[in-house]
Design a protein around this nucleic acid. Structure first.
Length: 416
RNA sequence: GUGGGGGUAGCUCAAGCGGUAGAGCACUGGGUUGUGGCCCCAGAGGUCGCGGGUUCGAGUCCCGUCCCUCACCCCA
């Protein structure tokens, strides 16, 4: 047996894991400040949830899902994204019954079976929000604003691109026009695009194949086919973004790889990141809930690719030294140190001690490396004198503390 | 699924034409019979990805294979 994690699936070790935790905690706090509550979703769903939600013809469903049969012969799939699961939960628990909108956020691992590369892993972490029940442009604007705020708090420069992909009323007409334009030009398209012509012609718009790009340059423009209602909706979203002084670019070729999107779609990109430069993406999905069997419920949301955010080197406030390392010299002192550390921890203060029978010097070094502000030293002298030595590792000073006064002293020091 | 690059110490990397495998960082101990960071000294740590071949001799050359990585594609 070889101890090795599966391809594209990685561990996140300390101290890196600490940076992840801080970013996730910051995100959660931010989402709550905007009125979103956490929904904790299962990692497994029935395969149909994704097949129907994301779209049978999408690459995700066609070739990127971890799908298997359980012992009862049901087909289950590790979630490749979260929105379909949120919609499923929304319908299953009749969340619309207790008042709209429902504002939820989630965080956790997603899975897609792709060839790994920079910024693309088979297990990756997403942080996202869904605002369900409102068709108002202010809902679109709120989630976009929230997403931008997330990046700005981390000091990450990102470019916001928005577009409208229309709805049931107008998109079919555009798709027809696109097909008509492409008819006769199939020979110039890549194999994937020839297939997509039937299943999801919109995807041809952002195909990166050179020849396809050439063909698409002359294609009808999505922006000109959008119906009046969608156009008006998009105009009001843009207006709100301007009021909030959000910089953005409209790109009528921006489409998403998931079928459920309608009207507003957007993406936050980091040009410095390489091929996988999309940090976050989202949009409106007004038909997904009814697709899942619920009441017609318009909704809008986004998802942040946390792995890519971490690759973008977020600026994090440094964590200063804190806590107490208990240094023990001699067996008797070790017994006592064990109890002292336990009591300090009981006070809610970070504390640690040596388990390796190391020298006092090595114990101090451990305290230094571990980022402890204080060392509480006890040895023969202290045991005899009935006091402890408290060393401030930052200032390099130390003082005697009477045993009975230790707890109060620590409590006082930790407060400031 | 298709290409490019690469696998040598825990990490980052060296080893002219084949000739006893090294450095920096990290780690452990010592320099201080009980005091961190800096410095000095010492130590520990390697199936040279794996298998086969050529050779007196292979980290080095040949064949195969696995893995990692970047890109296409896809997308967060």
């Amino acid at each position: 047996m070889e101890a090795k994690s599966p391809k594209g699936i990685a561990d996140i070790l300390p101290p890196e894991s600490g940076r992840w935790r801080r970013v996730m905690d910051m995100g959660s706090a931010l989402f709550r400040a905007y009125g979103y509550e956490e929904i904790m979703l299962p990692v497994l769903e029935h395969t149909e949830i994704f097949a129907r939600g994301i779209g049978e013809g999408t690459d995700i469903v066609r070739k990127e899902m971890f799908t298997f049969e359980d012992k009862g012969g049901r087909s289950l799939t590790l979630r490749p994204e979260a929105t379909a699961g949120v919609a499923r939960a929304f319908v299953q628990h009749r969340l619309d019954k207790s008042g709209l909108p429902v504002k939820l956020y989630y965080r956790g691992p997603m899975f897609r079976h792709e060839r790994p590369q920079a910024g693309r892993y088979r297990q990756f972490t997403q942080l996202g929000v869904e605002l369900m029940g409102s068709s108002h442009p202010s809902a679109d604007a709120e989630v976009i604003l929230l997403c931008r705020e997330f990046f700005s708090l981390l000091g990450i420069e990102s470019v916001l691109v928005v577009n409208s992909v229309g709805d049931r009323a107008c998109r079919p007409a555009y798709v027809d026009a696109l097909r008509a334009y492409l008819r006769g030009r199939e020979g110039e398209l890549c194999a994937d695009c020839r297939r997509r012509m039937e299943e999801n012609p919109l995807r041809l718009l952002d195909c990166k194949e050179k020849t396809c790009g050439g063909v698409m340059r002359g294609a009808p423009d999505l922006g000109e086919f959008i119906c009046t209602a969608c156009r008006e909706h998009f105009r009001r979203v843009e207006e709100l973004l301007r009021v909030a002084e959000v910089e953005f670019r409209v790109d009528s070729r921006l489409v998403r790889g998931l079928d459920y999107y309608t009207r507003t779609v957007f993406e936050f990109q980091d040009p410095a990141l390489g091929a996988q430069n999309s940090l976050a993406a989202g949009g409106r999905y007004d038909y997904l809930v009814e697709e899942m069997g619920g009441e017609p419920t318009p909704a809008v949301g986004f998802s942040i690719g946390l792995d890519r955010v971490m690759n973008a080197e977020p600026r994090l406030a440094g964590e200063g030294e804190e806590g107490v390392y208990v240094v023990a010299i001699g067996e008797e002192a070790r017994r006592k140190a064990f109890v002292v550390a336990w009591r300090i921890r009981g006070m809610g203060i970070r504390a640690d001690l040596d388990h390796m029978e190391r020298s006092p010097k090595a114990q101090m070094r451990e305290a230094d490396r571990g980022g402890f502000r204080y060392c509480l030293i006890m040895g023969g002298e202290e045991l005899e004198g009935g006091y402890l030595t408290l060393r401030d590792m930052k200032e390099g000073t130390q003082e005697r503390v009477e045993e009975d006064a230790v707890w109060e002293t620590l409590r006082g020091r930790m407060a400031c």
